[in-house]
Nucleic acid binder design. Structure first.
Length: 918
RNA sequence: GCCCGAAUGGUGGAAUGGUAGACACGAAGGACUUAAAAUCCUUUGGCCAUAGCGGCUGUACGGGUUCGAGUCCCGUUUCGGGUACCA
């Protein structure tokens, strides 16, 4: 009876569906555990072998927890709104809903073949109305709330209105776009429109004029995390800065809580650090500078208040509103020319070309500490969006200011004793202050504190904490996304009533912007409320649907709430989240924000969504090359390629096995190579290919599809092999060179049980040695799985099998297949059944380790001299240190090595080592 | 530039400060077989020795702590990831 993995896997996959093996219900009699994968965007290319890496790991973990008696929630779904489907629609005219459904079906088929234990009854798709109803609902809630900094939580906007009616803006501590001051009387005198505009300044979802990343090629704005180095992540098109009126989420209101929350969760330090940098808290102060010969003043932000005596000029961002008011008539022409030049440069040019540019505004500012007047410049090295869009420049102690000062010949005043600023600035925050009035003689740290104190006491400014984290731009000028539950009346936005949700995405046939430049929804017929008010034409971005999907899995069919209180209080939060690091500053920030907001509303009971997070590494492609001798159709094997003038050519990795080319398949691969000749390795008919690690992509012919692997070796082999490849978190190339090893392992397991045409098992009792191997395995596996060390776990099975030899005793095999079940569920089920066990191995009990089997009878000690091993001696396991010492010292080899000298020290450590120091 | 992370045989990779190279691939040799596949056995870091025992050396490089360092500390190099005028 052969190991017919194909038949076995089909049989059990069908059986699991029939039995509903993986269906899960809330069950208060069992402890719960929630294991989640980052749900995929179903792309047209299907899954490649890199995608299932994390899914396999989480599947093993889920099955393990289940065997340990936990009630495990392990769902899967699709992030099914997004740009690629829409780009494809523009190119081909195929409706995104159609291609998305097709892609999902393909993904499902591929996932099913791998034998995952998902509860598919809980599947969610972000593009379905029953799902995005709750995305829209959350948006309405954000619109109707503001963030109260004194209470450190979101509060209803009606509270804010009541407050304004009572005492205006006095004493208000709320997250806002700009600080406003008005009295209750003024508030009451505001027109309806003015009141609404004022409230917009505080809402957590607000319509704001902001600098956005505009991608002309995609015809939409993008969030900061959707742009990298001036190019869009999707498609790699250039992005430019543009002022637009957009829906935004006030994520920045939660900056401090997002930062503090990191200390409470079990994520890798590096990922937390990435988030900390992205949030970018910096403590400093705002200082007001008066403009010379004018009653104007402006505010700057600095973290180095100690360097105020070294300010030799000021710089404004070109986009700053101050530019217009501070530019003098004489300088106007020059400034306008500069602003024009800056505007023309794309983000990408600004990044690649770091030339120092700038222009003098004509105005001077008065240093509030020294009273001196310094020129105000305008330069694009100052960003409008951070701090106040204006800085004080201290060229001696800031490298950017230094470069600017050198370029424009501005003075540089050193402030720290002994520093040399003739070649470069001294940026370090250390040393003793000089040239700094009342700060002289203090260390930099002391000076920072003192200067801050001085500034606040003398009302020159205030202590301020700034964050780098920006509000999220939430509008996309695209079709394939959630419609906003928003309509406009007299130009003002209003939210639909909750009873009108979901607002379904209308059908359109043209996915391009309208002739008037409106988003594609402008093509929709009757896109208005029943009362005839026009609906919002933008749609929500990709991260909208993925920000709370983990909550929906808890209660996916509830049409009364995102998640019921009971379901949420049972499942609470994701215990283990597995996914890639690429979401560190996008999804993983937005989800935390969204979760904290819902927590503030009292909808959910946990403040953080993902308790533990594990990042799986990327699987890269391993490309193969053949070497064609120039101007011929002859190909030369790897070891001889240097003897010829050759061109390396990518060859499809699917016709290469262990780097050996299937030459017939190669001839058939491409008509061009039909008549190819080969120069083989010496003494064989083998053509050996070269290889390189590259990104997995179609153009490199290195994409490996999991279906092909399943077809050839079976799902159990794929699962084991992906884990065996190396540590889960490490990036590694896909390389099938070792897959025979794990496949052989499974066949050996099979062959233990299968003899001739049936299964035979021995009923004999297990020997002590067999039990020892088994319990060693139990102990190691339990530890390895809990620590996500799946590669060593797979090795542990192989070691155990080597030790067991040909043992086919039921007493050993039953626990063995239970242990194997999380890794290779299909073969485990088959053997479980053959053993005559009831039910499914998935419902069995994880075996417990009996440590007594692991106790050794005797222990071999290595005897070392000065740390170098010289010989070995065997002792009974219970021998005490004194006996060991005495025996070792009396041994003739010891006498030889000690050569009559007394030992200085004898160290016996619990690892079978005796070390003698001479 | 800044912040992380890594570096171990021909390859993927093991190793709570305690016999480095587990496990697997590949390779070499052998058994079985008409043959192939499959299976099984032996060897496999390097150098030296070899009838046999064995010896030396070795975890990117240079130092240090320690009885003992792949592991901890300091410095250097290389590679990978993140981020970038954030004042």
């Amino acid at each position: 009876m052969e190991y017919n993995f194909k038949a076995i896997e089909q049989k059990w996959q069908a059986e699991w569906i029939k039995r509903g093996t993986y269906r899960v219900k809330e069950d208060s009699s069992k402890p719960k555990y929630y294991v989640l994968d980052m749900f995929p965007y179903p792309s047209g290319a299907g899954l490649h072998v890199g995608h299932p890496l994390g899914y396999i790991a989480s599947d093993i973990f889920s099955r393990f927890k289940r065997l340990q008696g936990y009630n495990v929630l392990h769902p899967m779904g699709y992030d099914s709104y997004g740009l690629p489907a829409e780009q494809y629609a523009i190119q081909t005219g195929q409706h995104p809903a159609v291609t998305t459904a097709k892609n999902i079906a393909r993904y499902r088929e591929q996932l099913d073949k791998i034998g995952f234990c998902y509860d598919w009854d809980r599947e969610v798709r972000t593009c379905e109305p029953e799902y995005y109803k709750w995305t829209q609902w959350a948006f309405i809630q954000m619109f109707n709330h503001y963030y109260d900094k004194s209470l450190e939580k979101a509060c209803p906007i009606s509270d804010l209105v009541a407050r304004f009616e009572e005492k205006g803006s006095e004493g208000l501590q709320a997250a806002c776009s700009e600080e406003l001051t008005f009295t209750a009387a003024q508030w009451k005198a505001f027109s309806q429109e003015e009141q609404q505009q004022t409230l917009m300044n505080y809402r957590l979802a607000y319509l704001g004029d902001t600098m956005v990343n505009w991608c002309p090629k995609l015809g939409t704005v993008l969030a900061n995390d959707e742009v990298s180095e001036g190019l869009s992540i999707r498609g790699g098109y250039p992005v430019e800065q543009k002022m637009m009126r957009q829906w935004c989420l006030r994520v920045s209101a939660y900056a401090q809580r997002l930062l503090d929350g990191l200390d409470k969760i079990d994520w890798t330090e590096s990922l937390k650090e990435t988030q900390r940098n992205w949030i970018g808290r910096s403590e400093g102060c705002e200082v007001q500078f008066k403009v010379k010969d004018s009653d104007m003043e402006f505010t700057i932000f600095t973290t180095r208040a100690d360097t105020m005596f070294g300010v030799t000029f000021m710089v404004l961002a070109p986009e700053s509103e101050l530019v217009a008011s501070l530019t003098t008539p004489e300088q106007k022409a020059e400034v306008d020319a500069y602003l024009d030049a800056v505007k023309k440069r794309t983000e990408r040019e600004r990044i690649s070309d770091r030339r120092v540019t700038g222009v003098f505004s004509g105005s001077y500012a008065i240093n509030p500490l020294s009273g001196e007047a310094v020129p105000v410049w305008i330069s694009d090295y100052v960003l409008a969006g951070y701090g106040t869009g204006a800085i004080m420049a201290v060229p001696a102690h800031d490298s950017r200011d230094y470069a600017f000062a050198k370029h424009f010949n501005l003075p540089i005043i050193p402030l720290i004793e002994g520093c040399d600023v003739s070649e470069e600035s001294f940026d370090a925050k250390e040393g003793i202050m000089m040239n700094s009035g009342f700060l002289n003689g203090l260390t930099v740290k002391e000076a920072i504190a003192k200067a801050k104190e001085y500034v606040s006491e003398h009302h020159l400014g205030r202590v301020k904490v700034n964050f780098r984290l920006r509000d999220a731009i939430f509008s996309r000028q695209r079709y394939w996304g959630e419609p906003f539950p928003v309509y406009y009346k007299d130009g003002m936005p209003y939210m639909l009533d909750e009873s009108q949700l979901p607002l379904e995405l209308p059908e359109i046939s043209d996915f391009k912007p309208t002739a008037q430049g409106e988003p594609p929804l402008g093509h929709a017929i009757n896109w208005q409320t029943p009362e005839g008010y026009p609906l919002e034409l933008n749609t929500m971005p990709g991260f909208a649907g993925s920000s709370a999907y983990y909550l929906r899995y808890m209660d996916p069919h509830n049409d009364k709430a995102l998640v019921s209180k009971e379901a949420n209080e049972y499942w609470r939060q994701v215990d283990l989240y597995i996914g890639g690091t690429e979401h560190a500053t996008g999804h993983l920030i937005y989800s935390r924000f969204w979760n904290k907001f819902l927590f503030d509303l009292g909808c959910i009971c946990e403040d953080e969504p993902f308790k533990k997070l594990v990042n799986q590494g990327m699987i890269q492609g391993r490309s193969n090359f053949v070497y064609r001798i120039k101007d011929t159709n002859t190909f030369v094997t790897l070891s001889k390629k240097d003897q010829y003038d050759v061109t390396p050519i990518h060859v499809d990795v699917n016709i290469v096995s262990n780097d050996i080319l299937d030459v017939n398949a190669f001839r058939a691969w491409n008509p061009e190579y039909a008549t190819a000749e080969f120069i083989f390795e010496d003494g064989s008919e083998n053509y050996v290919c070269g290889w390189a690690v590259e990104k997995m992509s179609k153009s490199m012919f290195n994409v490996v599809n999991p279906d092909n692997v399943v077809e050839k070796f079976g799902a159990d082999t794929l699962r084991l092999y992906e884990m065996f490849l190396g540590p889960l978190e490490a990036s590694k190339p896909w390389d099938t060179n070792g897959i025979d090893g794990v496949h052989r392992f499974l066949r050996r397991v099979w062959n233990l049980c299968a003899h001739g045409e049936s299964f035979t098992f021995s009923d004999e009792e297990a020997t002590k040695a067999e039990l020892k191997s088994l319990h060693k395995l139990i102990k190691k596996l339990t530890w390895d799985i809990e620590h996500f060390s799946f590669n060593t776990a797979v090795s542990a099975f192989m070691i155990c099998l080597n030790e067991l030899g040909r043992c086919n005793k039921r007493a050993i095999l039953k626990p063995f297949v239970t242990l194997l079940a999380p890794f290779a569920p299909h073969i485990s089920e088959e053997i479980w059944q053959a053993l005559g066990q009831e039910g499914s191995v998935c419902g069995a009990q994880w075996p417990l380790c009996d440590e007594s089997y692991l106790v050794e009878d005797s222990v071999v000690y290595s005897i070392s001299f000065n740390g170098k091993t010289r010989f070995s001696l065997e002792f009974p396991a219970d021998a005490d240190n004194e006996t060991i010492q005495a025996t070792v010292l009396a041994h003739e080899s010891t006498q030889k090595w000690m050569d009559g000298k007394p030992a200085r020290k004898i160290i016996i450590v619990p690892k079978k080592i005796v070390n003698i120091v001479l």
